[in-house]
Design a protein around this nucleic acid. Sequence first.
DNA 1: GTTCCGCATGAATCGATAG
DNA 2: ACTATCGATTCATGCGGAA
Lengths: 306, 306
Amino acid sequence: MEYLDRIFHGDCEDVLKGLPDDSIDLIFTSPPYADQRQRTYGGIKPDQYVDWFMPKADQFFRVLKPSGTFVLNIKERAVNGERHIYVIELILEMRRRGWLWTEEFMWHKKNSYPGKWPNRFRDNWERLIQFNKRRKFNMYQEAVMVPVGDWASGRLANLSETDRTRDESRVGSGFGKNISNWVGRDMVYPNNVIHMATESSNKRHSAVFPLPLPTWFVKLFSQPGDTVLDPFIGSGTTAVAALSLGRRYVGIDTNKEYVRLSEERLADVQARMPGIAERKAKYSEEVVQGESGGTAQPSRSGRVRE
Amino acid sequence: MEYLDRIFHGDCEDVLKGLPDDSIDLIFTSPPYADQRQRTYGGIKPDQYVDWFMPKADQFFRVLKPSGTFVLNIKERAVNGERHIYVIELILEMRRRGWLWTEEFMWHKKNSYPGKWPNRFRDNWERLIQFNKRRKFNMYQEAVMVPVGDWASGRLANLSETDRTRDESRVGSGFGKNISNWVGRDMVYPNNVIHMATESSNKRHSAVFPLPLPTWFVKLFSQPGDTVLDPFIGSGTTAVAALSLGRRYVGIDTNKEYVRLSEERLADVQARMPGIAERKAKYSEEVVQGESGGTAQPSRSGRVRE
DNA sequence: GTTCCGCATGAATCGATAG
DNA sequence: ACTATCGATTCATGCGGAA
């Protein structure tokens, strides 16, 4: 399966045509928002957003397993003093094309962009929209249970970057906390409100979501060995979460620099993963070879094959 | 102005026809959700929700001042494993009829309805959708400022649950804290995510939202002396907030029992309001007389006229 | 090693100005 | 009139250097 554990350079609409039907367990992504990130992505006009998105969504539908889930992180801009309707139009159009609008999680961003205006406050939340192909899909609720009181308390989001980096490599560590702290404590299911700060100090990518965000959804909607796709991979956060949790990953980005950045981060994670070093030595000959397919330009991730 | 400070019994679509154009500063309401509360309201089918709502919304538009605001508390149900689209359709239809979809606040309900399902978590948030007639509207941001973050994060997080519960019931306390404690501290503007427990220790009525919720919006979108309308008044919470903050109120409900309950609560509030008792004694003869108008059945609220 | 404080940094939005 | 660019506004966070 030459598409696994790779970061592809290209438009996801084209790249995904090289993937078989029903091959992905979870799609987690945050596409460029309308009018944003013009430098790297060119910017999509709000009025054209749905037309831009839907051909890609059709490919997502095709490659997603019937039991799989698509989680879309997005938020509508204010245009002429109003919230623009492209996000809700997108939901309606997705349904027309066969998707089920199963749920809408709310991401509460504690540190939103500052500013003051006479007609509105700062925007502190984004949508995490869950789409499915079927009413029955895989959901592993036990994998994201939390100790009583920790959920929504903000404590989970207060870990420093160094803490998180250190714990990143620990498979199954959840939000970066040592699981041993939880032993003996009462565990409860979380709810559909997610409290997390954005990463504001990332120097190389201007719009990263925090690692705990994809981590949570990867654990909730996939099992070890499953495949996670992010068609707008950016700095690679979704793939890092997948790799750290023992899932296969597929990442795509139109920006070559982001592809390199993602691969760098993934190599970093691998180097820190316990057990990988040994396997690497054992199978040192077995290096993944990059192969071109269509406009897609897969590059080697260096991940050791199983 | 015989419609001020009254709770009317009847369908708001009919009752509002007795009100003049451009007479209301703020409409805050939580209409019966689709298929909910069938006993008291008869229940509206999700597919018919928009058709049911729009004639009423047209009346809201007429009676609202051009500088006024309409805040709608609503959340879509899950139907057949999907979120139903009636809220989205409602937003689109409102825009077709001239409303501006200015903003969508998020109400994070800290204690949501319990339950467990295989395909979704508990629903901990609701929408507070802000509509306006014009791009320029009255907004009094200073009235709802909150203490600056890091001071609050240290101190607020350490308050006990009882502290928070007690303070939330205090009228005028905004987000449940006594602002006076923070004099001299730096204050910042809030954002569009509102954290509030659902309610409430009150045994006598089952309000759908807690008093601090309308309180916050009444302070944000009206001034003392302005008029606040809730066309689905329920247990009277919006009117209680308005009265307590020195605003005029208009409440409407199809359920006679709720009209009585609202009036009872309002009389209660009045009795506790400083200064009112004296005025009552002075103008004891001047009792508001109920008058019938159309299907509307205004009843006396007992409020002393100015 | 800790803790504390200063500082740069954002998936923003509006209104004014310029073509 | 309609679009493009620019400055002003504002605050939670994590980093680095200092005590």
